[in-house]
Design a protein around this nucleic acid. Sequence first.
DNA 1: CGAGAAGTTGAAGCGTGTCAAATGCAGTGG
DNA 2: CCACTGCATTTGACACGCTTCAACTTCTCG
Lengths: 256, 256
Amino acid sequence: MLVGPIEAHRAVSHIVHKLQQFVRLSAADRALLARTAGQRVKRYMPRTDIAREGDKPTDVRLILNGWACRYKQLEDGRRQIVSFLLPGDICDLNVFILREMDHSIGTITSATIADLPRDFFDEISAGHPRILTAFWWESLVNAAIQREWTMNLGQRSASERMAHLLCELFVRLRMAGLADNNSCSFPLTQSDLAEATGLSKVHVNRTLQELRAGSLIILKGKTLVVPDLDRLISAGLFNPNYLHLEREGRQLDANN
Amino acid sequence: MLVGPIEAHRAVSHIVHKLQQFVRLSAADRALLARTAGQRVKRYMPRTDIAREGDKPTDVRLILNGWACRYKQLEDGRRQIVSFLLPGDICDLNVFILREMDHSIGTITSATIADLPRDFFDEISAGHPRILTAFWWESLVNAAIQREWTMNLGQRSASERMAHLLCELFVRLRMAGLADNNSCSFPLTQSDLAEATGLSKVHVNRTLQELRAGSLIILKGKTLVVPDLDRLISAGLFNPNYLHLEREGRQLDANN
DNA sequence: CGAGAAGTTGAAGCGTGTCAAATGCAGTGG
DNA sequence: CCACTGCATTTGACACGCTTCAACTTCTCG
């Protein structure tokens, strides 16, 4: 499935926006990303599995649009969302090494996802070191996010935990250029939030009401409004350092 | 600090043992590892920080002996151990990319740790592809472990969670050649287990008693005995797939 | 042998889970 | 346009797993 150059450019904007938090990409870098992301694009329906635990990994994937998640499931049905994949996120850099998936990936909304072929990685290794570095950065940030989730589940109370998760999603969406000043699109159901926070659906509901009562969030329909991010940050004991938004440290600036 | 060739060889045996779960290293590969790990070795006291949140990462490190952990801390003092570092584990492959540590690393026992200089990575990139691949594998397995911990904290009950953690540590120690048939050295205190599982110290104590009562473990002094691993595995709903022990079918049932 | 750390025990309280039913909301077909 | 349907959200009552607090015991090691 192929998309036109304009759509490809728009679709790739999220990852470019995000990676530029860390490195400055050249016009050639951006063009390569746009070209590659425009080939081999698949569209998925909401609530569809993209990969299942036990599968042989096939390709590296780039989320162009829509939300997805990694999740794990126990035999008795208990399910845990272990991370969210937002537009601009890359998944499965492991493809070329590990033999089988230890978790599943499924869409939340409908989504468009590009497969990145192996050649692409050869190409960036050889001629686009900044993209390569930025991909490394992305995967290290993902590891840091996973550690923070461990902290979140292990130490924070229900409302802290929820506030923390909302902060993280809001900031990550902003990194991808998907949040304006204080609001963003928010397609998660309370069940999704329950599976991500390890709380019951009912308690998620009550926790959200608590946050609403404190005017920390306005969550209605599929939109999240954060009237005062600083207050949500302190309610969630959120420290963004683990996202490594080291803008001023952009070591590797391109010349053009 | 330099150690003699014999001690270096013994010290490096854990990582070789572990990496060979995944790739078969040549004699030259092993020799390079032993030589590098024998230079720049530091010795740490028990309960000492090796790196602190906020520090600039300096070197890639290899645990030669002893146990350590990564942990995060909230301002109010709540502490979460997010992973354990066992002999043969590598930490901070991120060194060359991220600007500051988002977590701390501290020893549990006294430990000897080697700093791996940047040249070493240039050398393996150029001439020792199997080591490089194995290091990749190691870091992907670490990411998988972190996801599994998320699952563990989010979905499992106290006793399942504890059983799962003990399974993981036992299997990982065996991968490093540090467990005989059914027992291993086990230096963690109940406080450590509490910080790793997100439970209170008191409840950890009760949970361990429960496991002992079911003859699932014998934990006394600093030794853990697992009389019947299969039973502990099912008590912890433990599925070892996330450790990716995929070297020609070497699975849990094997005794070596 | 003494002192501090680690482990153990009991009682009481609270945060979160469970169950069950009601309400609201969006999409669909008549 | 309304009635119907199914899913998401909300509410209340109750149960339980885990935490907290505080005291006691047992180990470890100088």
